[in-house]
Amino acid sequence: MEVVLAIVIGALYGGGLYLMMRRNLIQLIIGLGLLSHGANLLIFTAGGLRGDVAPILAEGATKFAVTPADPLPQALILTAIVISFAVTAFALVLFLRTYQTVGTDDVDEMKETDT
């Protein structure tokens, strides 16, 4: 399982960085999205893929019968997803405004601030 996930994470990072280096604003945004998915999946994998049961103790029990899943990576990923949702939504609005004001979605054309 780890191997499969490692390959998926690698593909997400590779695809994300590739898209970020393209000149198109929309591809930039999709690239950023892929990158944050890759990071989330990395947390998930690095946190350990163990346990099939939820980490909730049965009534009256003091110990888990089988090793439960680690809840913390999931909480972290949830938070990260929420944040990347907000950031992506903002970036979409910003990129749309930029496209309307500058008149192009080609990053290479945006040289106003380069000198």
């Binding site: 907000a86 939504a89 903002f90 979409l92 609005v93 749309l96 309307q100």
Partner: peptide, 13 residues
Amino acid sequence: GVLLTFVFSLGEE
């Protein structure tokens, strides 16, 4: 509120 702020401002273009 945040979701609708974004959706409305995107939709009003």
